[in-house]
Simulated assay, not measured.
Amino acid sequence: MVAALEQYLETEHQLTLSDDSITVIPLEGEGKVEERIQKLYLQLISNLEWLEAISSADIILWGTHSQGTPVSVMLLHQLLQRGHIHLHRQAVCTLAMAGISHGPFPSLQGSLIVKYFEADAARELFDFMDSNSDISQKFRDSLQSILNKGIKLVLVGSLQDQVVPLYSAILTSVSHSNILRAVYIDKHVYSEDDFLINLVIFALRLRNAGIPDHGLLVHVSEVLAGSIYAFEGGHSTIYEEVDVYMLAVRYLFDTPGVSPLAQQQQKRQPPSSLPRSPANIKNLSLLQQQQQLEEVRMEPFKAKLRLNPYYLPWVLRGIFEDAIISKEEWTSKELGRLHELFLRWAPTSARLREFKFRLEPLKDHIFGSS
């Protein structure tokens, strides 16, 4: 994170920070989620230098990985509640890499690795598969609080994660204007013209634009699962890439975000005071839409061991016939490109060939009509 911040400031603003301008706080601790929160909080308050750095900082960049995502969100909420962070003068961005927000792959729950060798902390992670579980509810309450207070959240999943589904890493059931979603792709599997990769990126762009993906990322996640028995990168390589951290740095500095302070500034000029010209009526509508996005939207979620394979064609049909999506110029171009890539796509693995087979009935009706 430090390397990304220094690189950004040097390249974008020709600014070099002194060594004492940045305080790195490496928090470590094992155990179940709430046990870790307690341990990490005690680490912080017992180190006066760290506590002062958090309280006096101009910006706070918070990086976390895997199980650390719910731990970090709930710890951050606790720090806000106890007055250690002051959002009226501090900007905060949390980067969650391969976060286990909706639990691991359900298929791992009965594996020998988890059943016999992993600790209670690992088994607890499967409770996140159900949004109604006790620990999920606590996580969601904290998440809702920090987002509504103006904290930015960057969610980066790994394309071939062996442990965490993409839908879990990008927290598919939660929507808010301060969330940015992205995918990390290992170099050895990346191809600019790969249909599946472009389909995932398209779905993420929809979510970042505030447009529903009709559940596409949930259904695609099952196909993307990496192997925990062979090295394929993914879960343990995402945090080694500086560009992942750079995304969070740029999101913090280069975008305005939504916060209670911004809402107060909007309220100082009531929309009714605007002249009722066609342009201002349109602006008023956009303002009302923006205000609706300022509240966190949370859908119930429960992971399934196996998804119904017949849902995928209907999910894609919903996307391609969505009135909002069809009106956007950039989406129309992307749909046309996806059509071309699909026609050229020749997957080699059995899993991907099955995925393409499930989409064949839509080749002409949906892809062809774009």
Rank of each mutant, 00 (worst) to 15 (best):
L80F: 09
Y245K: 04
L42P: 08
M1L: 04
E30H: 15
K363M: 10
N178G: 08
P256T: 09
E232F: 00
W345Q: 02
S191E: 13
Y251Q: 13
V218F: 09
R337T: 02
L286V: 04
L75F: 01
Q292R: 06
H235C: 03
S173V: 09
I45L: 03
R358W: 01
V258T: 12
L95V: 00
E222D: 10
L112Y: 13
W62L: 10
I22K: 06
V2Y: 00
L155M: 12
R297D: 00
L61T: 09
A203C: 03
L312P: 14
Y311G: 10
K152N: 03
F128A: 01
Y251N: 12
L42N: 12
A169Q: 03
K32T: 12
L284D: 00
P309G: 00
T94W: 08
Q289R: 12
N178T: 11
S277I: 01
L293S: 12
V249E: 04
R36G: 11
P275W: 07
R297Y: 07
S191V: 02
I324E: 11
E334M: 04
T16Y: 14
N132Y: 11
R82F: 13
S111G: 01
F367S: 04
A169P: 05
D194Y: 03
V296M: 09
A323W: 02
L76F: 01
S177E: 14
E241H: 13
L362H: 01
L312G: 14
Y311D: 15
H77N: 13
S133L: 08
V73G: 05
S236F: 12
G368E: 05
K302S: 08
I325T: 14
R297W: 07
L51F: 03
I197T: 00
A225I: 09
V73R: 07
L335P: 02
N47S: 02
R36A: 08
E118R: 13
L75K: 02
L287R: 15
Q14K: 09
A182M: 08
V315K: 05
A182P: 04
L284V: 06
M1I: 02
T237I: 07
L95G: 10
L17D: 06
E30K: 15
F105D: 05
I100G: 04
R344S: 03
Q288G: 01
I185H: 11
S66M: 06
L15C: 01
E294P: 05
S46L: 11
Q290R: 12
K333I: 04
W50F: 11
L287F: 10
F117E: 06
H88M: 06
Q289Y: 06
V71C: 07
E28N: 13
K187D: 15
E360L: 13
Q291L: 01
G318D: 15
F253K: 01
